[in-house]
Structure formats: structure tokens, C-alpha cells
């Protein structure tokens, strides 16, 4: 019996561990090692250069430019997405009629919940190509709409203008994520007892007050998780940026992930690219740690 048990454990654990070890664990471990070399990838020869790659990173204007864009995304994307998500979710669930019977959701809420989720099931490649075409100067629907309503003056080569390209990309990231959080917050709100909202109504609380004083505190855990996810997304942003603007014009919408990709696969500087990857890893880790610290402090104050 005992032998059968061991045989079972080993046969069930070894295949997943093997796959995971070869394709996930070993690359992650090697990344740290490669980041300390000057490896060009073509020859097997390389030299250990210690922290040289990281020193070079500190002086690399292109890296800082890309990092600045990620920082702007990090500051704005989670907050704007969560606020929009919460507002729309509130409208769906308690935005309808309020009468003696209580608080109602709006009519058609199930349909909205289906439609809002669309971008979430589309692949990022589809979303990227879709928006790239929408921003196209002559054939795009953005300028087409502006011209149709007589605002010809506002029609622009959106992605060709360094002042707008980054914001155009940011809009795509927002567009593709809001719907998911509406559905997520909406599901969380539905699990709350309805009398809470009815009590708020009886106390004469307006809709904004209800949202800020009732919904946000009750959904706080969900909001925290959402923030961490959106923050990770903001530090990445690679796929949308690469497809929509390819970081251009010039470097006007560059992000760190795209810098890494181009350094590695266009310029074959694998050592330096790995150093960018390591920097991204510690960045993600410290953002998550800092966030958890801040929210913990808030909890203490509230308690």
C-alpha cells in the first residue's frame, strides 16, 4: 500500500514538475545570471561584467524615457479604470428607480454586463490592430466621426503626432479593461445584502454619497486586488504599445517592455535586455509591496 502511494505521488508530480522546471523555472533563474553578462547571443562566449549592465541602465536615456511612460500609466490607469468601473457598476446595480419598495438596478443590466465584457474576450492582437485602424488618419473612424459632426479641425494624424501617440495608447488600455472591472465590481455588489442600500436610501444618502460611503468600503478588498492587477498591466503594456504605435513616433510612446524586446530581439544585446527584465521584476515587486504597506496603514487608521 505504502509503495503504491509513493509510486502514485511520483508519477503524478514528475511530469508537471519537469515541464514547469524546463520552461518556467530555469528561464527565470537564467535571467538573473545572463543579466550579469555581455552576451550577444550568437557565440556561446560571453564575459561576466558584474553590475555593468545595471550601471548602463541608470545612464540610458531611452530606458528612462520608457520608464516615465510606464510611471504615468501606473499613476493613471488603475485609478481611472477603477473609478469608471465603480461608477458604471453602481449605475447597473442601484442606478435605477428608487421608490418605497427599495433600490433597483437599471433595466437591461444583464445585457450591459454581457456587452461590457466584450474587450476582455478579444485577443490583445485584435484590440491593437482594431485601434490602430481606428486612429488611421484618413480611413480611421476617429477622424471619420470628427469630420462627420463638423469638427474637421480636430481631425489629426493621432499616432503620427508625438504629443498624442502615448495618450492614444493609454486610451486603448483603458477601453480594453474597464468592462471587466464593471462586471467584477457588479458581481461583488450583488453579493452584498440589499438592505444596506435601502438603509442608505432611508437615511437620505444621495447616489454619490452611497457610492463613496457604502460601496467603496464594502468592496475594498476587491478594489485592492483590482489595483494590483492594473498596476502590473501598467508596468507591462507591451502588446498594445507594440501593435498600435510601436513606441513611436520616435520614442514618444515607448514602454519598458518594448525596450526589452527590441534590445534583445532586434539588437541581440541579450545581457543588457535581461538586465532590463530584472529591473522590471524588482519594480513590479516594490510597487506591490509599497501598495500593500500603504493600504495596511490605512486599515490601522480606520481601525
Amino acid at each position: 500500500m505504502a509503495r503504491g502511494r509513493w509510486l502514485f505521488i511520483v508519477t503524478f508530480l514528475v511530469p508537471p514538475l519537469l515541464l514547469y522546471g524546463v520552461f518556467v523555472v530555469s528561464p527565470y533563474a537564467q535571467a538573473f545570471q545572463i543579466s550579469a553578462t555581455d552576451w550577444g547571443g550568437l557565440s556561446p562566449e560571453y564575459e561576466f561584467v558584474g553590475l555593468d549592465n545595471f550601471r548602463r541602465l541608470l545612464d540610458d536615456g531611452y530606458f528612462w524615457n520608457a520608464l516615465r511612460h510606464n510611471a504615468v500609466l501606473l499613476a493613471l490607469l488603475p485609478v481611472v479604470t477603477i473609478v469608471l468601473g465603480l461608477v458604471l457598476a453602481s449605475m447597473l446595480n442601484v442606478g435605477g428607480r428608487r421608490d418605497r419598495v427599495g433600490v433597483h438596478g437599471v433595466r437591461g443590466a444583464p445585457v450591459y454586463r454581457i456587452v461590457y465584457f466584450f474587450p476582455q474576450v478579444l485577443s490583445v492582437a485584435v484590440i491593437g490592430v482594431l485601434w490602430k485602424e481606428m486612429y488611421a488618419p484618413n480611413t480611421g473612424v476617429v477622424n471619420g466621426t470628427l469630420r462627420a459632426v463638423g469638427l474637421d479641425g480636430l481631425a489629426k494624424p493621432w499616432l503620427g503626432d508625438p504629443r498624442f501617440a502615448f495618450w492614444c495608447v493609454a486610451v486603448v488600455l483603458l477601453w480594453s479593461n474597464v468592462g471587466f472591472y464593471v462586471v467584477l465590481f457588479s458581481a461583488a455588489m450583488q453579493s452584498l445584502p440589499r438592505d444596506i442600500y435601502e438603509a442608505a436610501l432611508l437615511d437620505g444618502a444621495g447616489r454619490v454619497t452611497t457610492l463613496v460611503r457604502v460601496t467603496v468600503p464594502l468592496l475594498w478588498d476587491t478594489i485592492q486586488v483590482a489595483w494590483v492587477y492594473l498596476a502590473i498591466l501598467a508596468i507591462d503594456g507591451f502588446a498594445v504599445v507594440q501593435i498600435v504605435s510601436d513606441g513611436g513616433p520616435g520614442y514618444a510612446s515607448d514602454v519598458v517592455g518594448l525596450r526589452l524586446y527590441k534590445t534583445a530581439f532586434n539588437e541581440s544585446q541579450f545581457g543588457y535586455a535581461s538586465a532590463i527584465g530584472v529591473a522590471m521584476f524588482f519594480l513590479t515587486l516594490s510597487v506591490a509591496a509599497a501598495f500593500l504597506r500603504v493600504t495596511r496603514r490605512e486599515k490601522v487608521e480606520a481601525g
Binding site: V25, S26, P27, Q30, I232, A264, S274, G277, M280
Partner: peptide, 24 residues
Amino acid sequence: VYFGFVGGMMFPVFLALVPLFFVV
């Protein structure tokens, strides 16, 4: 083993990109 698997969720895939290319 458990934390080895679950810990994989914390790492950005970008970190693995270069070595993964050569592993494959």
C-alpha cells in the same frame, strides 16, 4: 513544490523572455 508552482504567478513573463528563447 507547492510554493514553487504558485510563486510562478509573481514573476513577469518579460523576465523569462530572453532565456526562454534559448531554452526553446
